[in-house]
Design a protein around this nucleic acid. Sequence first.
DNA 1: CTCATGTCGCAACCTTTGGTTGCACATAAT
DNA 2: ATTATGTGCAACCAAAGGTTGCGACATGAG
Lengths: 122, 122
Amino acid sequence: MSPTTTAVDDDLWSAVGDPTRRRMLDLLLGDGGGTATTLSGRLPVTRQAVAKHLGVLDRAGLVHATPAGRERRYEVDEAQLARAVAQLSSVGAAWDARLQRIRRIAEAIQRAERQTGESAED
Amino acid sequence: MSPTTTAVDDDLWSAVGDPTRRRMLDLLLGDGGGTATTLSGRLPVTRQAVAKHLGVLDRAGLVHATPAGRERRYEVDEAQLARAVAQLSSVGAAWDARLQRIRRIAEAIQRAERQTGESAED
DNA sequence: CTCATGTCGCAACCTTTGGTTGCACATAAT
DNA sequence: ATTATGTGCAACCAAAGGTTGCGACATGAG
């Protein structure tokens, strides 16, 4: 049985779990890249905060930086983000599977009780 | 265009973004419920830490408590978790859509350049 | 009834992390 | 050369995950 929560996912989840980082990914995807300064202009946080988040995303491999003159342009690593999305949805799928199994078991118990006429209230 | 990151999702993401809370959901799903004590026995954290997380999950509506004698049993709210999974995968789907749009645009540009004979290497 | 045990809840404290301000350094632009 | 813009580093602050310690309450044994 595949464990629904492996240690491998944790870095990815923590990278994408922060709301500011999710919005940064949105902006980078929409604009096709950006710098800490341009991003901070479109977010409710300072440039330094954005810089830290870019560092996190970079270490997670979700973005990569390209020094251009005095600027430092960041772009989304498409392949990595695609892999990330796949990981996230696989966890969701695992939970869904467990939920459905629970529902099936519950229904089976109810059927069995009806059949034997048991009333199993404690 | 639906914004891929709305403020509504933030509570949900922060509830499910923590690795310990994800594992707690796993255990609760697998065992069909549990108490702070039983969960802490199967996790690398103390009972008090588990209790705090159960509070977070409870406020997020993902679990609900049932006082039973001197114990306090928690169970997953299936409907809420199902809704949560749907939200998460919708964000992933939005990112996927953006990625595919970017790829299409990039391919279109390459085709156009090949056609006109331009070599736009900077 | 009383006592021992097991479960819980609360408060204080530590560490990490998201966020801020302030300053120094580098590169353009005039 | 001077001014303006973009970056990086360090100190500081507040919230969140985690720990220990203690007191309260239900339950089973004597």
